[in-house]
Design a binder for these strands. Sequence first.
DNA 1: GCTACTTGCTAAGTATTTCAAGCACGCTTA
DNA 2: TAAGCGTGCTTGAAATACTTAGCAAGTAGC
Lengths: 126, 126
Amino acid sequence: MADEELDDTNTAESLGRYLKSVRLGHKMTLRDVENATGKEVSNAYLSQLESGTIKKPSVHVLYALSTSLGVPYETLMERAGYIVPSGQKTEGQKHGKAATYSIDNLSSDEEKELLNYLNFIRSKRK
Amino acid sequence: MADEELDDTNTAESLGRYLKSVRLGHKMTLRDVENATGKEVSNAYLSQLESGTIKKPSVHVLYALSTSLGVPYETLMERAGYIVPSGQKTEGQKHGKAATYSIDNLSSDEEKELLNYLNFIRSKRK
DNA sequence: GCTACTTGCTAAGTATTTCAAGCACGCTTA
DNA sequence: TAAGCGTGCTTGAAATACTTAGCAAGTAGC
């Protein structure tokens, strides 16, 4: 086999192929999508995305496409080569809610951020 | 009310300020972050991000920063001017128990750091 | 045939990001 | 004093994203 599959081209192609299949699935033309994004993504540019010429689009572009095509943004990220770390919230757990800490009453946002930070701390320690 | 907050400068500054505050909150230098991202984001570039010189970083950059700084990617998107529609995949409330569990099993060092960080979060939120 | 229109696509240009190198300042040690 | 190091930051070049204009092939009507 000896393929060089670590190449960026691969993921870029994957993203492109995915975008194209979604577009065709919706029976939309390149210009349809262009209009759907409110001209934020030109048909020419979309074509380059689909063909893999553009590898690292900006957040703006990916986001516009995700909403216009009705595809979750995260899916696009994955296709672009980013495995969204769902491993972050490992759900293998017992529980014990020990409430002895003063970290107890958190808003859910705060909880989220703290969890993330905890993760960060721990990964740093390795 | 002037809902057209499409002012790029504003959001860029917001993103920059946020990145900087998080970095400082972690007591990291620009080069620390550069290393944390595995050199994917240079310290020079990060400096430009923080100062608002760069307005639309690629997905790659935002993602690398989110994981390296322990900040949810969605937050960075928001700060960059994208309101993540809570319809899509926002895992807002869904992590309650797992998160609590993790936060309950802290070493005292970790607890200290987390409290510190929580402080930082709350002061920032004003 | 030839217009007219639509499709996907590309060539060529502009704008922007991104990097490598280095500068200036502050601090520390000698 | 100075030499060394780490810090944030800038600069100028390179790479890449993105835009605009337009082409070739297809389809349909005349």
